[in-house]
Write a protein that binds this DNA or RNA. Structure first.
Length: 576
DNA sequence: GCCGTTTTCGGCCCGACTGTTTTCAGTCG
């Protein structure tokens, strides 16, 4: 039973308690505990073994006991008793937009509805409209909600949402009267997936903004349109919403809309302690109701005695106490990145030559590029073997000669960690390369002991410099391998190998919470695009954002080191 | 159900929008 399994169970409990009508704070406690487990960065099984469950934020005696029961027995009596009184299937109805716990309870108690199908047919038969608080419009809206649930897929990947959001910003900034437009919400925090696209506009005249937004060609339906806020569904089923605030209140508004919810709750507590009520409109002095307006977010934080907290840290993972101690991480910038150390070319499954890849990297300001094609053992790609590597060396030297000193091209390999834990190339071949990335592409579903042992063997191989996409996950498509990450991190810390932050938006692996753990343990990190074609170098910003979310600073990221330091480090790792 | 430089008890953020309301409830973020 993993952190994620337990978090899902607690979310389910919260859903059912909400429908049951339990006090909201008990429900929030379960949600907080679930969130906390997902952000823990440690295996909860390990924490339980150490007896430290109650030290987890948001976990007290009662929830700690439930975690322990789940881990020890795989069962939870509390959950069984709960589902004996309230049908488990009701929780799924909460996914329907604009349908909440109160209505679900109403439908269940008056009409015995416990499933989506039953709810849909009742609405179609007009049996809901006469219930208290309902009407013909609510009934139609509910049917629309059910239809949209069927249309809507998973949350959007960050990498899919960013280009759309930039598009929207471009349009909205052209609207007359608009002073500024910014992305907000989880997108601005660079979360790996986003539920919808939130945009905040600074203008005195909201109406033209709303019109421009709701009449975009990609809008399939308008979900709501008020004087200062509108939301729409796009033709692909994704959603976006826009708020408009006057420029002098843009700071509080942007801060509010960026979240996270938990971060905002903390901030509001802090404001209250200082005698202010904080809303998206202003900081309002409680004593006399006077408003303190903030045009920028920095003013909001400053008014509360804090340095500016960058959006990617606003997850209530200790950033506010750190800000109070003036101990926030120094922000990693895209411009700090000098190199990409895991990339492909036509020597394996890449789509561009060494020279084309180097030119593309150079065009994006990189000073060092490692070509690390797959080793031949990975059956799905045309990999390189020891003999191929010597021919590839000539191609790299030719490209280097062509580009001169503007960029340094390193020869490396992405060597396969085989199913038996050995590497796909012998030590002598690896020793002859500038850099070695070791990755797993197969056998990711092996049992925990086996897959962990493979990983540990690769980490301890003195020729290996980077562990590529360590968990092997593909966001929303493939679960991470069942690695014992405590063991993996301990071995990495001991060996000095770097763990990769793979910047491909389908991977983002290590993920933010594990970056944070690596940072705490002092494990060096490597942010790489894993580019298979020139435009993939643009992934770098996602890797940087993930590193920031994990509180990484430039010093710990080897891609930020100048060439000389990087080469010294590489030379020092591989035994002569 | 959690938590504590006002508290081990009594708090726990605040407003927009919609639809049903004649003053508000439900949902969302």
């Amino acid at each position: 039973m993993t952190n994620k399994d337990i978090a899902e169970r607690f979310e389910r409990i919260a859903d059912l308690l909400q429908i049951k009508g339990e006090v909201i704070y008990k429900i929030l406690a379960y949600r907080k505990a679930a969130e906390s487990l997902l952000g823990l960065g440690r295996d909860v099984r390990e924490v339980h073994r150490e007896g430290g469950l109650e030290a987890i934020p948001g976990v007290g005696k009662a929830i700690a006991e439930k975690i322990a029961e789940l881990l020890d027995t795989g069962e939870l009596r509390f959950y069984d008793e709960l589902t004996a009184t309230i049908p488990e299937s009701l929780a799924e109805l909460l996914a329907i937009p604009d349908l909440g716990p109160k209505k679900i309870k109403l439908f269940w108690e008056t009409l015995g509805i416990t499933s989506l199908e039953a709810l849909e047919s009742a609405a179609k038969a007009g049996r809901l409209r006469d219930l208290p608080g309902m009407g013909a419009k609510s009934e139609a809206k509910l049917l629309e909600g059910i239809a949209s649930l069927a249309r809507r897929g998973d949350r959007m990947l960050l990498g899919d949402a960013v280009p759309v959001a930039r598009d929207l910003l471009g349009v909205l900034r052209q609207v007359p009267g608009v002073v500024d437009a910014q992305v907000a919400g989880s997108l601005r925090r660079w979360r790996e997936t986003v539920g919808d696209i939130d945009i905040l506009v600074a203008s005195r005249d909201a109406d033209p903004v709303m019109s421009a937004f709701t009449s975009l060609p990609r809008v399939a339906r308008i979900l709501g349109r008020g004087p200062v806020k509108s939301s729409v569904e796009f033709v692909d089923g994704s959603r976006a919403q826009v708020w408009v605030h006057p420029p002098e209140r843009f700071g509080t508004a942007l801060q509010y809309a960026t979240g996270s919810k938990d971060h905002n709750v903390r901030l509001r507590e802090l404001a209250l302690a200082a005698g202010f009520s904080l809303s998206e409109h202003a900081l309002k002095r409680v004593s006399d109701g006077t408003e303190l307006l903030c045009a920028t977010e920095a003013e909001v934080y400053s008014a509360l005695g804090l340095p500016y907290v960058p959006p990617e840290l606003r997850e209530d993972r200790g950033e506010i106490p750190a800000a109070q101690r003036n101990a926030l991480p120094r922000r990693l910038e895209l411009a700090d990145i000098q190199s990409s150390l895991h990339n492909h070319s036509t020597w394996s499954d890449g789509k561009a030559s060494v020279l084309e890849m180097a030119q593309a990297a150079l065009a994006r300001g990189l000073r060092v590029l490692a070509i690390t094609d797959h080793s031949s053992g990975l059956g799905v790609t045309q990999g390189v073997d020891a003999e191929g590597l010597s021919r590839q060396r000539q191609a790299i030297e030719a490209a280097q000669a062509e580009l001169g000193s503007a960029i340094r091209i390193l020869q490396g390999i992405e060597v396969e960690i085989r199913a038996d834990g050995s590497l796909d190339l012998d030590d002598r071949t690896l020793a002859g390369l500038d850099i070695v990335v070791a990755s797993m592409h197969t056998g990711l579903r092996q049992p925990r002991e086996q897959v962990t042992a493979r990983m540990l063997a690769a980490i301890r191989n003195p020729h290996v410099d980077v562990i590529g996409h360590p968990s092997g996950r593909l966001i929303q498509r493939r679960e991470a391998a069942d690695l014992d990450l405590d063991a993996v991190f301990a071995a990495a810390a001991a060996s000095g190998v770097t763990l990769e932050i793979n910047a491909n938006p389908q991977r983002l692996d290590l993920s933010d919470v594990y970056v944070r753990r690596a940072v705490d343990l002092g494990i060096p990190l490597s942010i790489n695009t894993d580019a298979h074609r020139p435009e993939h170098f643009d992934f770098l910003e996602y890797g940087v954002a993930t590193a920031r979310r994990g509180w990484a600073e430039a010093e710990q990221v080897i891609n930020c080191w100048p060439l000389e330091r990087l080469m010294r480090w590489l030379a020092g790792r591989s035994p002569a």
